[in-house]
Amino acid sequence: MPAKREYDAPGIILAAIFILIAGIFLNDSRTLVDSDSYVFPAAICTLMIGLSIGFIVWNLLKPHPDKEATPVMGSTPRRIGLVALMLVSAFIMPYVGFLPAGIGVFATLMVLAMFEPWTLKRALTYALVCVAIVTGFYVIFDIVFLVPLPEMPF
């Protein structure tokens, strides 16, 4: 527990970002003509700005360190890798098709989430599981539920 930090600094920064976001939305509301379109979002923006300003002022006057913030445990590269890989799969799927993209990304994710040493037997089993699960998803969604998943180009 970092005892020295008196202000909830990340909280204040995030509140400021929320004020900015609400401001951008409020500003964009002016391009709308029909009052039905902007009454509600403008009210929400105003509320959000008010709450955020209140939070910041209250925190500056009476510092409340964020007690809940726990130190980040584990590997940050793996975290970033996971998000990046998922995004990659979403971007390449329309071009190479669901099955090839899926199997490729699934296998890479397996490597990313592996904490035990690889043996030949393990690698083979996992390869099989990877193909089976991705194909299983394909069958359930594309064939049974007729979801038009991205096809292979040829």
């Binding site: 998922m86 599981v129 990877c130």
Partner: peptide, 14 residues
């Protein structure tokens, strides 16, 4: 875990 993570990730994507 090496199976759970990709399976759940794919479940969310699809």
């Amino acid at each position: 875990k090496a199976v759970l993570v990709p399976t759940v990730a794919f479940m969310t994507i699809i």
